[in-house]
Design a protein around this nucleic acid. Structure first.
Lengths: 330, 330
DNA sequence: GCTGTTGGTGTAAGCGCTTACACGGAGTGG
DNA sequence: CCACTCCGTGTAAGCGCTTACACCAACAGC
């Protein structure tokens, strides 16, 4: 390609390549020499070759991140937070989606390792940390976001699903509801949310409500709600995520049920559409950006030799009109 | 890091490093030698270092892609299509979001060039191709998706916004509507959709309806619809995207208007929520995955020395319940 | 039997950087 | 005025690969 290399710069500036390198990477260089070098760089339009830098120095200044699904807005936000944290320190990231396929995920890891990432951020990874270390003996420092497994050898950042679900259920309880249904989600997040739901009920001495299994999609929420409506009675439902809540709205409408008059609903995630539903959906806002940011800072810490602490971030309850006080009770 | 290099493999297999390299990259190697090498690689768990490969060969087997916003589900789908196309041929990609900030976009390009991407895929790029070539003299082959500017020196893949909008408006027309409003979108896509709307009206001999400027967000759609309702009369509205349609639903509801009885609405994009709105939203499905796939194939073609053709993909009309035939007319 | 292929392999020269080491000169203290 | 330090710089050895080139069989054709 006839690229301009560090040699051209060195020649033009009348110094050695080592000096150019030092000028660029903060080694000792006399101010005026540095100025000359910088000027030559500017004049030539020189850009260092990352590959060569990485090869020579052993540090790629990039971290690899794998998310389950590049289509989810929450993951996009996480990436944003991550990138914001990393960029400040001259790090970049390369990322791809695993589509929740463990073998695909393993292949991606291979690829990232081959690219010499200095650290890894695994979001919602299905691979247990242990299996990870085994398959990839030379695993670089890693942090997890929303891990699936139990092992926690790695710093982990996640939201407090259980507390948030507890809060959601509590809200329904405080509104006087005593028959509160739950539409369950998938994976760890789903289980934790269910646990919060159960605990809130138990703490309040209210019997467990009916539950239906969902899959985090609109369609799954729709089906679950239909099943619930057909065979159970309840005045409120805590849905494990907003997408399913959409299906719940639809099923309720089709059954002639009015939200929130006949049934109150609270969702989870606070996706963009939640505020614009009819009625606006009460839900729990996930600090996705924050999660990414924290993970990014943790990675940086790890790279600096420090040991970051795992964190559990709270969700914010966003009260809107889909929950109604059940007259008389309370 | 004590990594295993090609030398270890060569020694273990009892051949030279050149032979190992050839065995890996499809050079001439005797079958049995190749078997030995492969076995040694397996035994050692050797992974070639992409950086070194790139540096030595000059080819990185990766393409850079920049999207405007990693939070948009449509872009996620594009990436998926792209990655599916590239992976088949041993290519990978590195991608990031520009957040529609030209200076950020330029910085990203810098970074990708430094990483020696062999080609570029620019989605909704704000930088004119010309300025691009000027700022980056050594620009690798590039393809555009949803370009903003007019210049078309580069292969471009986009959807037929105008035809789709024409179709949408036509649907409203065929349903007997004669006062059809439009909520405009942003950028080229917005302008093209508006043009389709105008043309459909003109072709039908129906006077132009009221228009309000939106910004592709729920809030923008809401405000635009409010303004429209307050000062205009119309029985249908073509909204430039689904997110704004959400705001439209809300504004209509607040104004006591029923969809589709009082006002029919058609959106654009067919996001996941569209089918679950009340009433389900009639909209135009964007072939986002397909767009990514085509772009990926084009990139591969470019890299193979061929010249891919630009393509304009059609959108699919998804008729749902938000459009109602206006009694009597038609 | 000799020259001409051709397939399989090794040797070694880079690719564009970083960095250990060496070196000279200027400044310091005794 | 000498021995030290320290700073700024250059020299050169890699980093882990690819690949042009050379080389050596083995085998064909004449």
């Amino acid at each position: 390609m006839g690229r301009i290399t560090i040699y051209e710069v060195a020649k033009k500036a009348g110094v050695s390549v080592a000096t150019v390198s030092r000028a660029l990477n903060g080694g000792r260089v006399a101010p005026e020499t540095k100025a000359k070098v910088l000027e030559a760089i500017r004049a030539l339009g020189y850009r260092p070759d990352r590959m060569a830098q990485t090869l020579a120095s052993g540090k790629s200044r990039t971290v690899g991140v794998v998310i389950p699904d590049s289509t989810g807005p929450l993951y996009g936000l996480m990436l944003r937070g991550l990138s914001d944290a990393l960029l400040e320190h001259g790090y970049g990231y390369i990322g791809t989606e695993s589509r929740r396929d463990p073998s695909r995920e393993a292949a991606l890891l291979d690829e990232m390792l081959a690219r010499k990432v200095e650290a890894l951020v695994l979001v919602g990874s299905g691979i247990p940390a242990q299996a990870l270390r085994q398959r990839f003996p030379k695993l670089p420092p890693a942090v997890l976001i929303e891990r699936e497994g139990q092992e926690t050898a790695l710093p982990t950042f996640q939201i407090d699903n259980e507390a948030a679900a507890y809060r959601a259920t509590r809200l329904l309880l405080e509104a006087g509801h005593t028959r509160i249904a739950h539409i369950q989600g998938l994976r760890r997040a789903g289980r934790e949310r269910e646990r919060g739901y159960r605990r809130a009920l138990a703490d309040a001495g209210v019997p467990l409500g009916p539950m239906a299994r969902g899959d985090f999609t609109e369609e799954g929420g729709y089906r679950a709600m239909r099943a619930l409506i057909q065979s159970e009675t309840f005045t409120a439902v805590f849905v494990a995520n907003d997408r399913m809540a959409l299906g719940v709205y639809k099923a309720a409408f089709e059954a002639g049920l009015t939200i929130p008059d006949d049934v109150s609903v609270v969702g989870f995630d606070d996706l963009a559409f939640a505020a614009y539903l009819n009625p606006p959906l009460t839900t729990l806002r996930q600090p996705a950006y924050q999660l990414g940011l924290e993970a990014g800072q943790a990675v940086l810490a790890l790279l600096a030799g420090r040991t970051p602490e795992s964190k559990v971030l709270p969700c914010e309850l966003v009260a809107r009109a889909s929950v109604k006080h059940k007259g008389g009770v309370a």
